[in-house]
């Protein structure tokens, strides 16, 4: 199998501060995302690049985050 992989071809996620540094929000995001895009760390939320394209567009993450602080970007939409 090829080792060549590309991350975030279709989807990107932006998470603003201070939400990104909130450890409680990080736990919540890790819990709601069914495809493992978010990882909770001591410093807050870490986005896992390799999982971005698995986003199923359920928007549970944007509902869990403070309004307007998390944006799901579909790169294929102008």
């Amino acid at each position: 199998m090829s080792a060549e992989t590309m991350d975030g071809v279709f989807i990107d996620i932006e998470l603003d501060e201070p939400a990104a540094s909130d450890p409680e929000l990080a736990k919540k995001l890790e819990e709601v995302c069914t495809v493992g895009i978010f990882k909770a760390t001591e410093n807050g939320t870490e986005i896992v690049p390799g999982q971005l394209d698995e986003c199923v567009l359920c928007y549970l993450c944007s509902e869990a985050a403070p309004e307007g602080s998390l944006r799901i970007i579909k790169k294929y939409e102008n």
Partner: peptide, 17 residues
Amino acid sequence: TRVDIVARGVIKACLEL
């Protein structure tokens, strides 16, 4: 099965190759 997910998969395969 979701159409968009399969579309992403096959397009990604092309791009990665």
